[in-house]
Amino acid sequence: MTKVVNYISEAFEELKSNVAWPEWAEVQKLTIIVALFSILFALATWGVDSVFAKALGFFFNWLLKA
């Protein structure tokens, strides 16, 4: 158990002293960029899924009528 506590303590010390944290304004800007790209990617995925679903629906309806 001592090893685990020591590891966690050293990890926090590493984060405090050796990690270069970005400025708050940069964090906000990058967060907005990531959120926008996530929304755009989700909409693109939804659009492609809808197109393929309709195309497959038309194809299977055509097969059943033939």
Rank of each mutant, 00 (worst) to 15 (best):
M1W: 11
T2G: 09
K3H: 11
K3M: 13
K3F: 05
V4S: 07
V4G: 00
V4F: 11
V4T: 08
V4W: 09
I8T: 02
A11P: 00
F12W: 04
F12N: 10
E13R: 11
E13A: 13
S17I: 09
N18T: 02
V19F: 00
A20C: 07
P22V: 05
P22C: 05
E23F: 09
A25E: 15
E26C: 03
E26P: 01
V27S: 03
Q28I: 03
Q28P: 00
L30S: 10
T31I: 06
I33F: 06
I33E: 13
V34N: 09
V34G: 01
V34A: 15
A35P: 02
I39A: 10
I39Q: 09
L40S: 15
L40R: 13
L43R: 01
A44L: 12
T45A: 14
G47P: 02
G47C: 01
D49W: 02
D49K: 02
V51F: 03
V51N: 02
F52P: 00
F52H: 01
F52R: 05
K54I: 11
K54A: 11
A55W: 08
A55Y: 05
L56K: 13
L56D: 08
L56C: 06
F58I: 03
F58R: 08
F58Q: 03
F60N: 10
N61I: 07
W62D: 13
W62M: 14
L63S: 03
L64H: 09
K65V: 09
K65D: 10
